[in-house]
Write a protein that binds this DNA or RNA. Structure first.
Lengths: 353, 353
DNA sequence: TAAGGTTGCGTTTACGTTAACGCATTAGTG
DNA sequence: CACTAATGCGTTAACGTAAACGCAACCTTA
C-alpha cells in the first residue's frame, strides 16, 4: 500500500493524501473521511526507506554521562555499548555526540550539558546521577526526546528508561554472601558515593537480606577513593573481630580487594562487588574477589540508543522501561561473561573497495 | 557523499560511477581508478534508505526450529525473541516465516525444511539440533545465508552463530550445587535427549566440576519424558541413600522437581535446572527448584534475526559468533529475570490505522 | 464590481540509488 | 570496405514520500 495507490482508490491526487496523512489542512472534510477510511481499511504504513530518503533526516543523539574515568570503567563500558549501537546504526542516519560531566560538581552540570546542544541533537541519552540538575536541564529543553540510563528519574516522561533494580541487586548480593560464607558474623557494606541512588539502594537491599537473620551484623562504611581507605578498614577489622564478608556496592570492589589483600584478611573475608570491569575481572581471576554482580552496562548503553532510534527514525513505540537482569558472576562463568555486545566488528562492508 | 557528488568530482556521469561501484564493467580502467580514488578518499557509503527504496528489497527470513511444544517452552521463548525482532524490523522490510520440525524424526527433516523454501527466503535461521540433516539441507541450498541458534555446527560458514557454552554451563551448575549443598554425597545428572549436544556437554561440565572432589559421586540418569521416570528416580534414591542434589540439564527440571516432591525427597535434595520457562519459574517460586541457569533463549532468537538483517539489509559484517552469558537465577533475582526482550509493546505506531 | 483572500485540490521537484537503454566511437570480421 | 560487435559513456525512469507551488473557484469587503 502506497500513497499513490490510496490516491487512486480515492480518486484524488497524492498531494491530497499527503495533506490528510500529515494533517496539513486545506482538504474538504468528506475527502478526509474518504481517504482515512481507505487508509484504515488497507492498513497503510509509510515506507520507512522512502520517508527517510525524502526527509534526509539525520538523527543525532547527544549523550550526557559522568566522566568516563571518574570511576573504574563502569561508564566506559556503558560508552562502549553506546558506540557499538552508533556504529551499527550509522547507515540509518544515526549519529552521536558525547559530553562528560563531573558528578562531583552539580553546579557545573548545566554548563556542560549545554555544550551538547551546540550540535543540535534530536534526542538525548542521559544518566541522571545528579537528579536535580538533570531535571532542571530537561525542563529547559522540554520539547526534546530523552532516555535515561543507569538510574531512573521519577515523574519524568522519557522515551525509555534502561536500568536495573538496585535494591534487588543488593538483596541478591546478600544471598550470594550467605551462600559463599554461611557463618554468622559481621558483614560490611562499602559505599563510595553515598548520595548515589543505586549505591544506597544496593546497600539497603543487602541490609534487608540480613535483617531477619539472627547472629548476622551489618555495618556500613563509606570509603573515600582519594585516601584509599586503608585505615578505615584496618580499624573495622580491629573493632569487629568476626568480619566474614564485604559487599562493595559498585565497581570499586577491586580497590577494596587490594586493601584486604594488603591487610592479609582475604582468607577470612568473602568479597562481593559490582560490574565486570577489567580490574574486577583480574581481581576475581587472582582470587581477591569471590563474586561479582553485573548490571550489563554495555547492554544498557546499546539498548538505550536503540530505543531512541526506534522512536526517532522508525516511529515505533519504544519500551518505556527496560529492566536489565542481574548477572551473577563467579570464577566459573567469568570467561563467558565477556561483553556480549562489543565483539569483533560491526562496520559496514567496504562495498566498493 | 553521494553518487552524483562523486560523478561531479570525477567529471563523469552517475551511471559510470554506478557501474564502477557495482563492478558491472564497460568502464575504462583509468576512469575506474579515478572514481575509486575518490570513493576511497572521501569514504563513500551508499545511502541505505535510497538503496532499499530503489531495490524495494524485502528481506524474508525462514526460521527452522524444533516443534514449539516438543519441549517445555524453551523453543517458545526462542520464538518470542524472533517475533519481537521481526516486529521491530517490519518497517525495514524484514519478514519471517517459521516451520517446526520433529527432532525425533531426522528422516523427515528434509521434507519439512523444504516447505520453508516455498516462500523463497533470502536467509535462514536454523537450530541445528539434528546436525547431519542440517548439513545435508544447507549443502543443497549452499548459496543461501544462514545463522545458527541454540547450538553450533562446526566447519560451516554461517552469517552468525548465537549460542551459549554448554560445558561451562554444566560446570557452573556444579559450582552452584556445591554452594547450595556443600556436603559430600551423590549428585545426579538427569538428561532427556542424550544425543543432544547441549545436554551431553552440560552433563560433562557438571561431572568435571566434581571430578577432582573426593567424596562426591556423580551418577547420570536418562529419563524418558513419556513414562515420567518416577521409578527410575525412586530406584536411584533406594540405591544411593546419600543423594544430595540433582542437576537437570534442560528445561524439564520442573518435571523432575514434581517427582522429587512426590517422593518426599525435596528437603534432602537440591535441584538445579535450565531455562526460565513458566513452569520452572513456578517450581522455583514454590521451592521445588533451587537454582536455574538460563541461556536467554529470547535474546538468542532476537539477536540472530538482527544479525541476518544486518548482513542482508545493511550490508554490515555481522558478529560471526555471539556467546550468550550464562544467567544464574535464584529465588532472589527471579523477578528481575523476566524477559528483557519481550516487554510491553514494540509494535509500530498504528500510524494510520 | 474589482481587488484581494481563502479553500480545495493537482502538479512538480527532490531525496540517492539502481539499472535499463541508447548513442557514439572503435575494433574485429567477411 | 561494409557490417556487426564491443567498448565507454551519458540519459532517464523508476522506487515512495514530503512539501512547495500553482491554479482555479469561491467568498469578502471597500
Amino acid at each position: 500500500m502506497t500513497i499513490s495507490e490510496i490516491a487512486k482508490l480515492a480518486n484524488v491526487s497524492i498531494g491530497t493524501v499527503d495533506r490528510v496523512l500529515h494533517k496539513r489542512g486545506r482538504v474538504a472534510p468528506e475527502t478526509v473521511e474518504k481517504i482515512m477510511t481507505i487508509v484504515n481499511d488497507y492498513g497503510y504504513q509509510a515506507n520507512t526507506f522512502a520517508r527517510n530518503l525524502k526527509l534526509s533526516k539525520n538523527f543525532h543523539i547527544g549523550v550526557l554521562i559522568p566522566m568516563l574515568h571518574s570511576e573504574f570503567g563502569y561508564w566506559n563500558l556503558i560508552y562502549e555499548g553506546i558506540l557499538k549501537a552508533a556504529k551499527e546504526l550509522s547507515p540509518l542516519a544515526v549519529s552521536i555526540d558525547m559530553v562528560e560531566f563531573d558528578r562531583s560538581k552539580p553546579e557545573n552540570f548545566m554548563n556542560t550539558a549545554e555544550k551538547l546542544l551546540i550540535k543540535k541533537p534530536d534526542a538525548i541519552l542521559l544518566a541522571p546521577v545528579l537528579p536535580d540538575a538533570a531535571r532542571e536541564f530537561l525542563a529547559k529543553y522540554n520539547e526534546m526526546d530523552y532516555a535515561f540510563i543507569d538510574s531512573p528519574l521519577p515523574d519524568m516522561f522519557p522515551v525509555s528508561t534502561v536500568v536495573q533494580n538496585p535494591f534487588r541487586g543488593g538483596y541478591l548480593a546478600g544471598r550470594m554472601m550467605n551462600l559463599l560464607s554461611p557463618q554468622e558474623g559481621t558483614y560490611i557494606t562499602v559505599q563510595t558515593h553515598k548520595a548515589a541512588y543505586n549505591s544506597s539502594e544496593r546497600a539497603r537491599g543487602f541490609k534487608t537480606f540480613f535483617s531477619n537473620k539472627k547472629g548476622y551484623r551489618n555495618i556500613e562504611l563509606e570509603v573515600q577513593l582519594t585516601d584509599g581507605g586503608i585505615e578505615l578498614l584496618e580499624n573495622a577489622y580491629r573493632e569487629y573481630s568476626d568480619i566474614k564478608g564485604i559487599f562493595v556496592v559498585n565497581d570499586a570492589v577491586h580497590r577494596i580487594a587490594n586493601i584486604i589483600a594488603l591487610l592479609g584478611r582475604k582468607n577470612q573475608t568473602v568479597l562481593i562487588g559490582y560490574d565486570l570491569i577489567d580490574q574486577n575481572r583480574k581481581a576475581m581471576l587472582c582470587g581477591q574477589v569471590d563474586c561479582l554482580l553485573s548490571q550489563r552496562p554495555d547492554f544498557q548503553g546499546y539498548t538505550a540508543i536503540y530505543q531512541l532510534y526506534r522512536k526517532g527514525i522508525l516511529n515505533q513505540m519504544p519500551d518505556p522501561t527496560i529492566c536489565v537482569p542481574i548477572d551473577i558472576i563467579l570464577p566459573e562463568n567469568l570467561e563467558d561473561e565477556r561483553s556480549t555486545i562489543i565483539p569483533q566488528e560491526a562496520l559496514c562492508i567496504p562495498r566498493n573497495k
